[in-house]
C-alpha cells in the first residue's frame, strides 16, 4: 500500500540523503576578514564572496557568510577586527591578511576559541590556520618564461617588471622567473624595474628606464602592469614587444585591439582570480563539515588565452579583473588531490 504521503516522505528522505554534507553545516556562521577594498581585485573578491555566500545561505549550506573590511589598510585594525569576530561567535573566519605575522596573535586566539581560520591571498604564518596556497613560482613565474620562450623561439631581450619589493608574492614569482630563464640561454633579462602591480607605477618606471635600453623583445611581469607598460612603449614610439598580461579588463581589451589592428598579437595572460575567496569559503565549510582537510590546500591560477579571450572580456566588468568563482565540488576535488 503506497499512499501519496509515504511516497512524499520517501522522496524527501531520498533528497536529504543525496546531500548529506549540507545538513551538518547549515547552522554554521562563516566570516570574511578583509583589510582593503580600494582596488578592482578586492572589489571583485567581495562581490564573488557575497554571491557564493548568499547562494550557500539560500541553499541552507551555512547560516551566515558575512564580509568585514577594515576602515584603514592597517594590520592592527585587522587584528582587532578578528578579535571582534571571535566575540561575535563565528564558527569560521576566512582571512585575507594585511600582514603575514602581525595577525598571528589574533589568529591564535581564534583557534584557541575553537574557531576554524582559513587564510588566502594574504597568508598568515600562524601554524594553526589553514591556508589556500598558490605555487606562484611555478604556475606563474616559471610558466611565464616558458610561454615567452614559445613566442620568442630565437630568444631576445627581456624587461622584467617586478611587484612590490619585499613582499612574499614578488619574491616567489621572481624565484620562478629566474630559475626557469636559466634554461633558455638565448633570453636575457636586460633590465628590472618595480611596477608594484599597478599600471600607473609601471608606466612611470618603464617610461623612465626605456630611453636607455636596447631593443626589448619581451616583457615578463607580475600582472596589473601590462597596460601601463604598453602605454610607456607607445608614448616613447618604440616597437611593441610581447607583453605578458595579468587578466585585467583593460589588458584583455588592449590585447583584443592589438589582434584587430595588427592581424595577430600572440601573448598570454594569467592571474590569481579574485574568486579565490570563494575557494577559501568552501575550504572553511569542508572543515566545519568535519572533513579531513590538509593544512595547505593548493589552488591553480586562472589563465586566459586567445580562445577564451572574448568570453572573458564579456564576463569581466570595466576596470575589473577576469574572475572565476569556485564551487564546493572544485574544493572537494582539490582536497582529494592533495591526499593522493
Amino acid at each position: 500500500m503506497k499512499s501519496p504521503l509515504t511516497l512524499m516522505a520517501a522522496t524527501l528522505l531520498a533528497a536529504t540523503l543525496a546531500v548529506p554534507a549540507m545538513a551538518d553545516t547549515s547552522g554554521k556562521k562563516i566570516a570574511l576578514s578583509n583589510g582593503y577594498a580600494g582596488n578592482s581585485w578586492r572589489q571583485s573578491m567581495l562581490q564573488s564572496w557575497a554571491r557564493i555566500g548568499n547562494q550557500a545561505i539560500a541553499d541552507k549550506v551555512v547560516a551566515a557568510a558575512d564580509a568585514f573590511t577594515t576602515a584603514a589598510r592597517e594590520a592592527p585594525q585587522q587584528a582587532a577586527q578578528i578579535q571582534n569576530l571571535i566575540l561575535q561567535g563565528y564558527d569560521a573566519i576566512v582571512v585575507n591578511a594585511l600582514s603575514p605575522d602581525a595577525l598571528n596573535g589574533a589568529v591564535k586566539q581564534a583557534c584557541d576559541a575553537g574557531i576554524v581560520v582559513v587564510a588566502f591571498d594574504g597568508l598568515v604564518t600562524e601554524p594553526c590556520a589553514y591556508k589556500v596556497t598558490v605555487d606562484l613560482a611555478e604556475t606563474y613565474g616559471a610558466e611565464q618564461v616558458r610561454q615567452m620562450a614559445k613566442r620568442l623561439p630565437k630568444g631576445g631581450n627581456i624587461l622584467y617588471i617586478r611587484g612590490v619589493a619585499g613582499t612574499s608574492i614578488d619574491d616567489e614569482i621572481t624565484k620562478g622567473v629566474l630559475r626557469e630563464i636559466e634554461k633558455f640561454p638565448n633570453m636575457k633579462i636586460v633590465s628590472t624595474v618595480h611596477g608594484d602591480w599597478d599600471q600607473t607605477t609601471a608606466q612611470k618606471a618603464v617610461t623612465g628606464v626605456l630611453p636607455s635600453l636596447p631593443q626589448i623583445d619581451g616583457i615578463i611581469d607580475q600582472g596589473g602592469d601590462g597596460y601601463g607598460t604598453a602605454e610607456a612603449f607607445r608614448s616613447a614610439g618604440r616597437p611593441l614587444p610581447v607583453i605578458m598580461l595579468g587578466n585585467r579588463k583593460d589588458e584583455l581589451v588592449w590585447w583584443k585591439q592589438q589582434i584587430k589592428e595588427k592581424g595577430d598579437y600572440d601573448t598570454w595572460s594569467a592571474s590569481e582570480a579574485p574568486g579565490m575567496g570563494t575557494f577559501a569559503f568552501w575550504v572553511a565549510q569542508q572543515i566545519l563539515d568535519g572533513k579531513d582537510v590538509p593544512k595547505e590546500v593548493p589552488m591553480g591560477i586562472l589563465y586566459v588565452d586567445k580562445e577564451t579571450l572574448d568570453a572573458q572580456i564579456a564576463a569581466t566588468p570595466d576596470g575589473g579583473v577576469a574572475n572565476v568563482e569556485y564551487s564546493q565540488d572544485d574544493v572537494v576535488k582539490a582536497i582529494a588531490a592533495v591526499k593522493k
Binding site: G38, A71, Q199, S235, R248, D250, D318, G319
Partner: peptide, 28 residues
C-alpha cells in the same frame, strides 16, 4: 583624506575608467 577615499571607493568602485581619445592624445 579618509572620508574622501571612502567616497572614491564607493563612487569609483575601484574601477579604472578610460579617458576619451582626444584627452588621452593631448598628453602626447
Amino acid at each position: 583624506s579618509f572620508i574622501v577615499q571612502s567616497i572614491d571607493i564607493a563612487y569609483g568602485r575601484g574601477l579604472q575608467v578610460k579617458p576619451p581619445p582626444a584627452f588621452a592624445d593631448f598628453t602626447d
